[in-house]
Design a binder for these strands. Structure first.
Lengths: 364, 364
DNA sequence: TTTGGAAATGTGTGCGTACACACTATTTTT
DNA sequence: AAAAATAGTGTGTACGCACACATTTCCAAA
């Protein structure tokens, strides 16, 4: 077994009887190399299990890359400002490697904004794109353009499997709905009613919400042994006043077992209504460690939060693309995040700062 | 704001009117530098917010470091073989930076083995030590020796706060006991009995078990609103046959609400007994994703596993020490791991391979 | 046979930093 | 006053790889 720190291209060249220039050409499939030299070098590479020193490679290389992120407007929803935090973190880290990162925001309430934002992103001449495909229809057509232009891209938050994405970074949303079902059913007995809430999003274009609900319904149908019904309530915009009335009506049902809310912001809205109706004893499962959700969790209004960890999704999306660009690293098609269950007793362990330094894999 | 990629020590030297040798001496407090030159260089450094290129620094430096890990014998318990996997992973990664890692194993069943293993570790002339302080008394005296010899060390798995550890990497064990209490009480009503099991460890020298039980008891006492008792069962060795009888007796109590097991291997033992007694409906909370525990979780015998993630603890312990040695990086005194709740529905998201590439922080 | 072009290879310099050693100026000791 | 020691600085080379450009070799065409 070679000592990886000491066996470099000079040693390869010496052993193969060629110059370091030829070794470089073989390693990078660059220029022209004779069959004889190619064979000799490859034999030495294989025999010694050569691994390039990626630190030296980075230092010696002189390329710059640009990554553009397309995501919903953070000012509209604190969930997406967590993503922005992850992006800012990544900017600071990757600048040393000659990678610059830019953000383009589209509005979830004006779907038409997606197209002009996407055009703007392309104007920036990105080497790669990280995209949260929240708007299914608009995203598909944009991805067609990326394919034409041969711009590599990765998806996060929501997966669209019928694309050529380098990678998807995020949770299995169907399974997160099943998990919510499991957490709501635990310890429950007797015939019952379950609620699913979707708040402030167009259900028809938001496959992530559809998948979550399906997971929830499938779990209840398959595992809750008593007679039950599952009802869905949607609020399409914050000016829709019938939603509150319908939820209050649902809360007054004596057989109500629990409520699953499909988004982080919706969780906050539902918790607020449950609290004001003095219904904090109803089992409530929602998403994400937004400030207000944390407060409701501590009060016991919310029983469980499923942590989507959007910040880390963004970080790992950038890492995936940067590794692809710089190191030509093969990406995992699906980088599945754990479905993290947050309760009042493990909350503190999640909101403390995570480890400052983690694996060095990203540069090796 | 300086462009971090372009402003190097040559630029500093030029701007300060000195050579790169003098800049180097100022940066590293090395050799001798006149007050005049020192002032000039420091002004330029500050004005330009100079940050060294750590990649170049690593390449240009020629130091080797040795880290030694002290942990319980993996052959005795699959939990510790997960740690070994983390160590092996880290060996591969850090060898490129001139860091070699060795392991020394002590037996939990022969406390006397700790002393000779610790001596062996010192014989290896480590630059730093990563230690699982499972045996409290033995550990304390060893840490005194490390302090004398000025060998930096980090602790993982169990914290001992009254030490000069660079860092502790692991979970808050008291809180994990509380979390277990929360998960067992959820949806339970009426007067009840709760069990805590400790399997195959000396409770007097194992503060991690003590802390977990205390957390569990404190949660139940503070939050379970009905009349209740908490009883503790210990098995001191696998030849202790009264344990099984006592557990079966506990299982037959009609007011039993749930059981908390304090270790991963004990969880397996308890689940096996619960299953054989056809008591899979009893709420059971234990630790870790060992193969057999996973099987029992899928069957529903175990309701929750708290994932200690020992592999990642080891990885991050090594990263902490390596960063300290190579980059003189200041370590977080406490690197608190999330208390991860595993159920049958989120299990798959945890046992898939984790992200292959993560933050580049470790080398910047 | 000679010439020109293509194929193939070797060499030099760069990336940014670390650090050993040569060199110069000043101060102290004999 | 001369020699030795100290303070301080500059220069060169190293790390391992990338890659541009100079040089050599080989082959085909005239």
């Amino acid at each position: 077994m070679a000592n990886p720190k000491n066996f470099g291209i000079k040693d390869i060249a010496r052993a193969a009887g060629v110059s370091v220039g030829t070794v470089d050409r073989v390693l990078h499939n660059r220029g022209k190399v004779s069959e004889i030299a190619l064979k000799k070098v490859n034999e030495v590479l294989q025999k010694n299990e050569y691994r390039p020193n990626l630190i030296a490679r980075t230092l010696g290389s002189n390329k710059n890359y640009k990554i553009v992120v397309l995501q919903p407007e953070p000012a509209d929803d604190p969930y997406w400002s967590l993503v922005s935090q992850g992006i800012e973190q990544s900017m600071k880290e990757w600048i040393h490697y000659g990678v610059t990162i830019s953000c383009c925001y589209f509005s979830l309430h004006r779907k038409s904004s997606f197209e002009s934002v996407a055009a703007k992103a392309l104007k920036l001449k990105p080497d790669a794109i990280l995209l949260a495909p929240i708007l299914y229809v608009e995203t598909i057509s944009f991805l067609r353009v990326l394919k034409e232009k041969q711009i590599p891209f990765a998806l996060f938050n929501t997966n669209i499997t019928e694309t050529d994405a380098l990678s998807f970074i995020g949770q299995d949303l169907y399974s997160s709905g099943r998990l919510a079902g499991e957490l709501i059913c635990l310890g429950q007995t007797g015939a019952g009613r379950f609620g699913v809430l979707h708040v402030d999003e167009d259900l028809n274009d938001s496959i992530h919400l559809v998948q979550k609900e399906k997971g929830f319904r499938d779990f209840i149908a398959g595992f809750y042994p008593f007679r039950h019904t599952v009802e869905s309530l949607n609020r399409t915009s914050s000016t829709d006043s019938s939603f509150r009335k319908k939820l209050i009506q649902l809360l007054s049902q004596p057989d109500l077992k629990g409520i699953f809310v499909s988004s982080s912001r919706g969780t906050e809205t539902a918790a607020s209504i449950l609290k004001s109706q003095d219904k904090g004893n109803i089992r409530l499962v929602g998403y994400d460690l937004l400030k207000k959700n944390i407060a409701y969790l501590k009060e016991g209004v919310i029983d469980f939060l499923i942590h989507q960890n959007p910040q880390q999704q963004a970080v790992e999306g950038i890492n995936c693309l940067a590794n692809h660009l710089i190191f030509k690293r093969v990406a995992k098609r699906v980088n599945l995040f754990p479905l993290e269950v947050i309760t009042s007793q493990n909350l503190e362990s999640y909101i403390q700062d995570q480890a400052e330094y983690t694996s060095v894999n990203s540069v090796i």
